[in-house]
């Protein structure tokens, strides 16, 4: 089975990694700061690896090239953008999921069918307006 990589072990990245590991997927989580792996749960069965995600050669060395899917959850939109393109175009990974804070960056990943982008900003806004219309009805 192909491995799943999560790049960026922040709050979102670690929680995705925990969830995937619970579903018994073969997960590798990458961060450049070892202390951030403390966010992983005790029963996390994947492999945490320290690597600099700005260095594609380093990522290739730990096998990201052969990933089945990649979740990109770095705190830096520009880095996420570059990683999404690199994973999708250079490494040709079939499923690339990426989180962007800035929704305008979405235009730059459009047309790349193996990149799926998520924007917490839009999700929050849409959810809030839904909640609001819900409470108005009551």
């Amino acid at each position: 089975m192909k491995r799943t990589y999560v790049i960026g072990c922040g709050k979102l990245g670690s929680s995705i990694a925990n969830e995937l590991s619970r579903r018994e997927l073969d997960v590798i989580i990458i961060d450049n700061d070892e202390s951030s792996f403390a966010l992983l749960s005790d029963d996390f069965s994947g492999v945490p690896k320290v690597a600099d995600a700005t260095d594609l050669d380093a990522l290739a060395n730990i096998g990201v090239e052969n990933a089945g899917e990649v979740y990109i959850t770095t705190g830096n939109d520009n880095l996420s953008l570059f990683l999404a393109h690199a994973c999708a175009i250079i490494f040709k990974i079939p499923y690339v999921y990426v989180r962007f804070d800035d929704p305008t960056l979405g235009i730059l990943v459009q047309g790349q069918s193996n990149i799926k982008a998520v924007y917490p900003f839009q999700l929050t806004r849409d959810r809030l307006s839904l909640l609001r219309s819900g409470s108005e009805q009551q």
């Binding site: 830096n76 520009n78 570059f82 730059l108």
Partner: peptide, 29 residues
Amino acid sequence: EDTDNYAACLMAKRMFNAKKTICVVDNPS
């Protein structure tokens, strides 16, 4: 940051119609 330059150049090229982009990077690879 190399990735900042990457994003800036892509933005210039794809959305703001720049004819030529020159991107300066730190990491030679």
